[in-house]
Design a protein around this nucleic acid. Sequence first.
DNA 1: AATAAGGTGTCCAGCTTTTGTCAATGAATC
DNA 2: GATTCATTGACAAAAGCTGGACACCTTATT
Lengths: 266, 266
Amino acid sequence: MNKPLLYPIRAVSKQTGISIETLRAWERRYQVVTPQRNERGRLFTEADVQRLRLLRQVVEQGHAIGQLAALTNEELRSLSVQPDEFADSYPAIRQLEPSTPEPGTEARSNWNAIDLARMMTSIERLDYAEVERELSLLAAVLSPRELVHRVALPLLQQVGEAWHAGKLSIGQERMTSSLLRNLLGAIVPLHRRTSPPARLMFATPTREQHEFGILLSAMLTAGGGLGIVYLGTNLPGEEIVKAAHQAAPQAVVVGLVGANGARVNQ
Amino acid sequence: MNKPLLYPIRAVSKQTGISIETLRAWERRYQVVTPQRNERGRLFTEADVQRLRLLRQVVEQGHAIGQLAALTNEELRSLSVQPDEFADSYPAIRQLEPSTPEPGTEARSNWNAIDLARMMTSIERLDYAEVERELSLLAAVLSPRELVHRVALPLLQQVGEAWHAGKLSIGQERMTSSLLRNLLGAIVPLHRRTSPPARLMFATPTREQHEFGILLSAMLTAGGGLGIVYLGTNLPGEEIVKAAHQAAPQAVVVGLVGANGARVNQ
DNA sequence: AATAAGGTGTCCAGCTTTTGTCAATGAATC
DNA sequence: GATTCATTGACAAAAGCTGGACACCTTATT
């Protein structure tokens, strides 16, 4: 039989990525865990460590530790968003489409249909190189605008649907996301002007992890000959304002996803 | 018959990485091991050395030597890295050893220093276009390997430090991250081969959101002429395994971040 | 739009215990 | 004589604890 494994605070901090100060504060204020003590200090059990890891994950996604402390591990797990990236990023992406009357299914030209179908089979095979090849081919041929509306958005939609239908695994979905992200990120700097007539700044506020919205917007903006200042996701509101003051863009684009409890503040 | 190999303290120190002083202190204070003696001094057995190695490993993970001394090797082993859920649940996945030999120590003296300093001031000004310009210039000039070791990593480090010191705002830090990510993501596909001799798969496990580690690794891999299958961050372990079975890469790279800042596991 | 009120991570002061390293000294070996 | 190892005592750094304070964000209120 084996003794229960016990970890001192330093080891727990290293394993969970939570600072020692924070570990103590969480315990002091919320009794998030109640480790045993010996004369030397705290001793965390394996279960404590696991719970703390879970807590960190959920906190990183924007929840408040004070609200989490009372929850069971089960409830915490149900809060963690990991498999849901597409579930909520997709509707936001659709809103982004400027002139889409309908996702009119048959309205899509067969040009795209063929390409996408082939690409979907490559995705199913996890054939990274092939998908990459096809995507970069399309990127070379199409304008940024076309790329967004005829490739990126439809592909995201199809992958999202296929994933929901259980026809694609998370790995396949993620591979596609990564590829698209790399592609879009790569295209942005290609349309650089020396002195753009105007500049836009892109960011998403705290808790908003979904990047595709602002990334696509940034790409369209750059493709349209405007300058960009791309900050990325999950910035405190104050910081966005501060950065806006410093960079002085003509406009600030803030990405939001409606579905997931995110609330619009300004 | 062969006598059991016995090592003098110096040899043990070298093998275990524990200083001679510390070895003696551990023995004196905690009887962590009790080596034999001859008129010349201590003689450690192979078993002693192994136990000492184990001890060092566990101490490095944050445990106190005083608490460890009484444990059996068995117990020590169960404390060591293995709670990392991956090591035992999914033997298919192994963390790869860092293969970084050494960054050319003297070659980078003035070259990089100047570039980074200038880039830092551009970052402070939130001058997206300028940073982008400088980065893509460097990307065009340097090899992927140099780009990683002489630009990306140093820049990430400097920005991280400056941010911690309060000299950079979150916005500035995020802008730099986004730029770097776009750049690196863009470079990956440039080094594509039609039929790479081997393929590696990249992903981070569920709680790990930090992408730079695997992204840099993927870039180096692609730059080295190997094929990649890039899945991205935050994948459940089974999914990684499933994807690995399907894509059948020669190796799987799993990114992990330790407590103190970004570490590249490649 | 400005202000007030929490929530939360980090730091500090003050104290104790643990732990790595060093200095001094002596013995044995080459 | 130089090197290696041993022992012992001493010391400083590291690591632990508590409670309070502070700075910063977010949210609610005016």
